[in-house]
């Protein structure tokens, strides 16, 4: 790798020669195995130069900007969004109103770069430690909870976080969290009330991850691979696989389409999270939506005999009502009659 002539070349070096040598600076600032090996041997062989080398190295390391301006987290994200947004605007005009973003910092006055390096280092460190601990300690067991149609459950995790799991949904979580991260996997829909603490809580939705410290939000991954994250309180950060990241403020909802396109909007909290309080909500829903909501809520099969006008839509809320009462409600405003036969519901007009 390094020739003898290199050894000789540096022999006559004076302070200013070291200070103007790119190879020397590279070693001082970014030592690697090769350069370290070379310079250690060289100093050993040229002990009389050791002091000069030390002086040069100290000088190189001490040169720094007098004025430092750290890019605050909110500025970092705001500029990022503006860059991303330019492309999106050209591609399509969303009918959903894109609301202006109000950024607030979760980590104000800190350098993003420093955080990245720190998190990365600690991640390496912990992932090493974690791998080792898998061998030694009890392995972490992953628990999967599946709700079929008609079933809703509430579970409490080891850290005190509560999860309302909706019908036809599945959640996978460890029996105990690691020291660094609390992570769960979600298919379907769940409402999270995350206990606040220092370990980040991550909901993995496959193509995106929701990362929070302590907050309440609703996450939904539909079968068409569309994601919706609606924030009730606190702050959440959503990262997709490509590294796009979006921060949500309370009462904002992020929708990520199957093709990866995303936008933010306001949301009607009853419509989005009424389900966890046993409120079945219809909002100007077409027949397909009404049908799938009823099927999912009551674990029944809904069939339509006859025809509905294409503009048919239904709006209504039912708090913890029986299937019969819901159908009765629909009948009264929509002139649709119903028959219940066990697990089958027939609608007709």
């Amino acid at each position: 790798m390094f020739q003898d002539k290199d050894h000789i070349k540096f022999k006559d070096y004076q302070l200013e020669d070291f200070l103007t040598d790119e190879f020397f600076i590279q070693w001082v600032k970014n030592p690697n195995e090769n350069t370290t090996h070379f310079w250690e041997k060289w100093i050993e062989a040229n002990a009389q130069k050791k002091e000069i080398v030390m002086q040069a190295a100290t000088f190189i390391r001490s040169i720094d900007y007098q004025e430092k301006h750290l890019m605050k987290n909110e500025i970092y994200l705001e500029v990022f969004e503006k860059i991303i947004r330019v492309d999106l605007k050209e591609v399509s005009q969303k009918k959903n109103s894109i609301i202006p973003f109000h950024w607030k910092s979760i980590l104000s006055l800190r350098n993003i770069a420093a955080i990245l390096i720190l998190t990365f280092c600690s991640w390496i460190f912990y992932s090493l430690a974690f791998k080792r601990s898998i061998v030694k300690e009890d392995p972490i067991e992953w628990i999967t909870k599946v709700n079929r149609a008609g079933i809703k459950t509430v579970l409490t995790l080891e850290d005190g976080s509560r999860i309302h799991l909706n019908s036809s949904s599945k959640i996978t979580y460890p029996n105990r969290f690691s020291d660094t991260i609390r992570s769960v996997l979600l298919e379907g829909e769940a409402f999270f009330d995350v206990a606040e603490e220092s370990r980040p809580f991550v909901v993995d939705l496959g193509k995106a991850q929701i990362e929070v410290l302590g907050t309440t939000f609703n996450a939904k991954k539909s079968s068409e691979n569309k994601l919706e994250v609606a924030l009730v309180s606190g702050k959440v950060k959503v990262n997709d696989r490509k590294g796009n990241q979006v921060m949500l403020m309370p009462s904002e909802m992020l929708t990520i389409q199957a093709d990866g396109e995303f936008h933010k909007s306001k949301f009607d909290s009853l419509e989005i999270i009424g389900w966890k309080d046993k409120i079945l909500v219809f909002r100007d829903d077409d027949f397909i939506t009404v049908k799938s909501k009823i099927e999912n809520w009551y674990d029944v099969e809904v069939k339509l005999s006859g025809k509905l006008s294409t503009t048919w839509a239904y709006t209504g809320n039912f708090h913890d009502e029986s299937l019969r009462n819901v159908l009765e409600g629909i009948k009264q405003t929509s002139k649709i009659k119903y028959k219940i036969n066990g697990k089958k519901v027939e609608l007709y007009n």
Binding site: W123, I134, T172, S183, Q209, E211, N239, R241, G243, Q245
Partner: peptide, 11 residues
């Protein structure tokens, strides 16, 4: 499931 890593760190 054990290999959940943050997307940001992955990149």
């Amino acid at each position: 499931a054990k290999h959940i890593t943050l997307h940001s760190q992955e990149i």
